[in-house]
């Protein structure tokens, strides 16, 4: 939810909606164009998420207490949550990839929650970010599948439990669904966050009318509560789908 840059030049006395302005990427210093290495608000909020993760996972656990402090028990909870998820979905041999999945989960969950701070920038609401995450998972899983299983990885697309006549058709469907994975994986995350944040902004725009502003404020509050839920659930969904894809790569047999 970025700064509301209300243009007086837009002002025609009516309502002013700029729900997408919060997603604009702009340089932190100066007004120049955004190049690849420009330090932008994206950079700022990505670094804030790094600092938050270090704060929780490193500083929070620095006492290594047997009886944990609050921050340490939250860090342990996050660890246990993802560790159990990886173990339950992929099995013991998937635990090797636990640090990668933990990285994804921690980044997404922190980026989502930091994005809920008013005036902040939600990095995970951009397709550029989520597509990189989803492609990283897709490419890793595909390469891993072939490295671990060789050509046997292709059995993933050959449903041996189906009648022989149906198998070629199913194989086509399976291949399509396999390649749609990164698309749905990334759009699900960015789309959920973008939609929620834009809706909050639209309600905020209605607050300019005195008659409906109480309803508008209530609606913003309700949406905010929902967005807190969405922030966690989308991080969870992204992570568990990563685990499911990883399981397919490790055990491609149906």
């Amino acid at each position: 939810m970025a700064t509301e840059t209300q243009g007086a030049d837009h002002g025609d006395g009516g309502l002013v909606f700029h729900p997408m302005d919060q997603f604009i990427v702009k340089p932190l210093f100066g007004d120049g164009a955004v190049g690849m290495f420009t330090i932008t608000n994206v950079t700022l909020w990505l670094f804030i998420s790094i600092l938050a993760i270090i704060g929780l996972m490193v500083l929070g656990t620095s006492r290594r207490a047997i009886v944990p402090s609050r921050s340490q028990s939250v860090a342990e909870l996050a660890y246990g949550f993802v560790h159990k998820m990886v173990e339950d979905v992929t099995g013991k041999d998937g635990l090797k990839y636990f640090p990668y999945i933990m990285t994804l989960f921690m980044f997404i969950v922190f980026a989502n929650f930091l994005g809920l701070i008013p005036m902040s920038f939600t990095t995970t609401s951009h397709f550029a970010v989520t597509v990189v995450l989803a492609l990283a998972v897709f490419i890793t899983v595909t390469v891993l599948g072939f490295v671990k299983n060789g050509a046997a990885f292709l059995e993933l697309f050959w449903v041996s439990s189906a009648p022989l006549a149906l198998r070629p058709i199913l194989a086509v469907i399976e291949v399509i669904s396999y390649f749609v994975r990164p698309v749905s994986h990334s759009i699900r995350l960015a789309g959920n966050l973008m939609a929620g944040h834009a809706v909050i902004k639209v309600f905020a725009g209605f607050a300019a009318i005195a008659a409906v502003s109480p309803i508008s404020v209530l609606a913003i509050t309700a949406m905010y509560g929902l967005e807190i839920l969405v922030a966690f659930i989308q991080a969870y969904v992204f992570t568990i789908l990563t685990c499911v894809y990883l399981k397919d790569a490790l055990h491609p047999h149906h």
Partner: peptide, 29 residues
């Protein structure tokens, strides 16, 4: 006026910047 044209998510100009800093972030994390 400083407002977004269409969806900022689909703006090609910013993709390189986001991807670059994201990869750095992920590696650090």
């Amino acid at each position: 006026g400083g407002s977004a044209v269409g969806m900022p998510q689909l703006c090609g100009d910013w993709i390189g910047n986001q991807v670059f800093w994201l990869i750095i972030t992920l590696v650090v994390i």
